[in-house]
């Protein structure tokens, strides 16, 4: 009974407030990305050119992340807790720091640290972004590896041992090839995450998709149209990656048939 009254009052207020305020006339500005005009076409090309940096950044960062993740996870699987400890600390620490503060620290803070040690090099935006993304992501990659490696039956390691393989041979010929197949979907997920996170690189001046859209908007003041276009750029990129991963999974799955 009471609820009904309250809701009615709220609705009436809403209707009155809407009708009483004058809705300002909105002018749409899709011309900024209209391929039929030369300005629109140039703008589109300007934004599309960001793809190259986003893709390069994501791929290189993903490769580094997979390598760092592997280096971090292997000691983390040791039976000795003192060997396990640094790996654990790394994962917990890196996992807790958000990407944006980490980027700001690496790009703006770290050079001071270097300078104090007598090294005077500016951080290149591309490599700064690659290393930060890779490190930030490697904590998650390491955890994915750990799950994958631990899911391989103990008998595989034992069988490898009985045919004389040492630890590294067992890992590279027996355990990792099987683990990688199992974690492929999770790694792909992580790659998509990197692609999206690479947008943060705009704060350190990387000419990637987001930075391009941002720059264009500061000339054109067409935020809705430009950022809508930006979102579709990411959407298409991620869909292409998903499609490729599905294809890869089918291809790898075909010759194992477990």
């Amino acid at each position: 009974m009471q609820n009904k009254t309250i809701i009615t009052i709220l609705l009436v207020t809403l209707v009155i407030s809407c009708s009483s305020t004058d809705v300002p006339e909105v002018t749409w500005g899709w011309y900024v990305i209209d391929p039929r005009t030369s300005q629109g076409w140039n703008n589109i090309i300007f934004m599309l050119n960001g793809f190259s940096a986003t893709i390069r950044l994501s791929i290189v960062a993903a490769v580094f992340s997979m390598m760092i993740g592997l280096i971090v996870v292997l000691p983390g699987l040791s039976e000795n807790r003192w060997i396990r400890l640094p790996s654990r600390i790394y994962v917990e620490f890196i996992r807790s720091v958000p990407l944006l503060p980490m980027l700001l620290w690496v790009f703006y803070g770290f050079p001071f640290l270097l300078k104090s040690m007598g090294v005077n090099i500016p951080i290149d935006p591309f490599w700064g972004a690659v290393i930060t993304l890779a490190i930030s992501d490697s904590a998650f990659t390491a955890e994915i590896y750990r799950g994958g490696i631990q899911s391989i039956e103990k008998g595989q390691t034992e069988a490898a041992k009985t045919v004389g393989l040492n630890y590294y041979q067992t890992m590279s010929y027996v355990i990792l090839p099987q683990a990688l197949r199992r974690i492929l979907p999770a790694l792909a997920n992580q790659f998509i995450y990197i692609v999206k996170m690479s947008a943060f690189a705009y704060v350190i001046g990387m000419q990637e998709l987001t930075k391009r859209a941002f720059e264009l908007n500061s000339n054109e003041y067409r935020a809705l149209e430009i950022y809508t276009f930006l979102i579709f750029e990411y959407l298409i990129l991620v869909l292409v990656i998903s499609f490729f991963v599905r294809w890869l999974e089918r291809k790898l799955g075909a010759d194992q048939r477990r």
Binding site: G155, A159, Y173, V174, P177, Q178, R181, Q256
Partner: peptide, 8 residues
């Protein structure tokens, strides 16, 4: 007992 062949 479980063969433990390398399935890949």
């Amino acid at each position: 007992q479980q063969f433990n062949l390398f399935p890949h």
